[in-house]
């Protein structure tokens, strides 16, 4: 068990290393010089050299990468003019464009993205499981077209189209809601939810379709499984069978998917964030890409990778916990 865990962790670290190396190489080879950008207009060659040294760009690509890895573990200092900028561990780099450590920038944006992802995921799972389990029961077969429609929509509608439609309907036509403007949960929970409800719905339209389909399929399959039949033979009430047995079986694939979706939403709901003007990680990426703010781009991609890898591991554990056939040993 411990051996397996260690292997998993080692594998995850390896994956992240490979990812960082690829991304680093990609941007190092990009035909744009980040030092020139940072130095700004009226930049003299001497000042450019200073800036380059301060950013650590005067070293070879490999050395730069090595310093980057060191910084992750021990933190890092960047000389900049008269004072030194300290970037505490885990240092993902320093954004000279914004004069802040990348980790600080990410930490700043993560609450927004997390709010978006968690809310959207909760809503999607609730709607998905609800609609899916109703449709999975023979009595509610008439709901099938509804779920089918939902599934089709999930495949056929890009999130920015849903977003646009929602904005048009609720903010422009009906004027029930103000144009979304992120308010932190700690500032005002009610406003937080009010401003996020449209983005949540937009994402849920896309996500809940898959969940509904999986639930229905899983339920249909589980109702035919041996353990359900056994339970029936023992005379357990039908409702209890449904809740404790069949649904549990149906939820297994859903758990993995939910964990993975949550992870990728945290960092890659770029379109939703853009559509609704939410200052999350995705917006940070788009901005950084436009300004060729290399450390931030690398940081966002690594964060995404990290979340995905962690979600993978968590999903495995949940899988074991929820599947009646898999026992944790």
């Amino acid at each position: 068990m411990i051996g397996l865990l260690l292997r998993r962790v080692a594998g995850a670290v390896l994956v992240l290393l490979a990812l960082s190396a690829i991304v680093y190489a990609l941007f190092y080879l990009a035909p744009r010089d980040p030092a020139v950008l940072t130095c700004g207009k009226g930049c003299t060659p001497e000042r450019l050299a200073d800036v380059r040294a301060a950013m650590g760009l005067d070293e070879s690509a490999l050395t730069q990468y090595w310093h980057f890895l060191e910084g992750l573990v021990t933190g890092r200092d960047y000389p900049a003019g008269p004072d030194v900028r300290h970037c505490p561990a885990p240092c993902l780099g320093y954004s000279f464009e914004t004069d802040q450590p990348v980790t600080a920038l990410l930490a700043d944006r993560l609450p927004v993205s997390a709010s978006l992802a968690l809310g959207a995921e909760t809503l999607s799972v609730a709607v998905g499981i609800g609609a899916g389990s109703l449709a999975g029961l023979r009595r509610f077969r008439f709901l099938d077209p509804l779920v089918n429609g939902l599934v089709l929509a999930g495949y056929a509608v890009p999130v920015f189209l849903v977003g646009l439609f929602l904005l048009l309907l609720f903010c422009v036509r009906l004027q029930w809601l103000p144009f979304p403007q992120y308010v932190a949960f700690t500032t005002d929970p009610l406003q937080w939810a009010q401003n996020l409800i449209l983005p949540w719905i937009a994402l849920a339209v896309i996500l809940s379709a898959t969940y509904a389909r999986l639930t229905r399929a899983g339920l249909e399959q589980a109702l035919g499984e041996d353990y359900v039949r056994t339970a029936r033979a023992y005379g357990f009430p039908e409702r209890r069978i449904l809740r404790s047995r069949a649904l549990r079986g149906a939820l297994v694939p859903l758990v993995t998917l939910t964990a993975m979706d949550l992870a990728s939403l945290m960092a890659s709901a770029v379109l939703t964030e853009t559509m609704f003007g939410l200052p999350g990680v995705g917006q940070l990426l788009v901005g950084a890409v436009n300004q060729i703010d290399l450390p931030v781009v690398v940081g966002v991609i690594l964060l995404t990778g990290f979340l995905v890898v962690v979600a993978n591991a968590v999903a495995d554990l949940l899988y074991a916990a929820v599947d009646p056939r898999v026992q944790l040993t």
């Binding site: 035909p31 379109l271 990426l285």
Partner: peptide, 18 residues
């Protein structure tokens, strides 16, 4: 598995920008 799990949009934006 990795490619499947990784949110492609993030990389695509970065790639197309450089």
């Amino acid at each position: 598995d990795l490619t499947l799990a990784f949110p492609g949009l993030v990389l695509a934006i970065a790639l197309l920008a450089v």
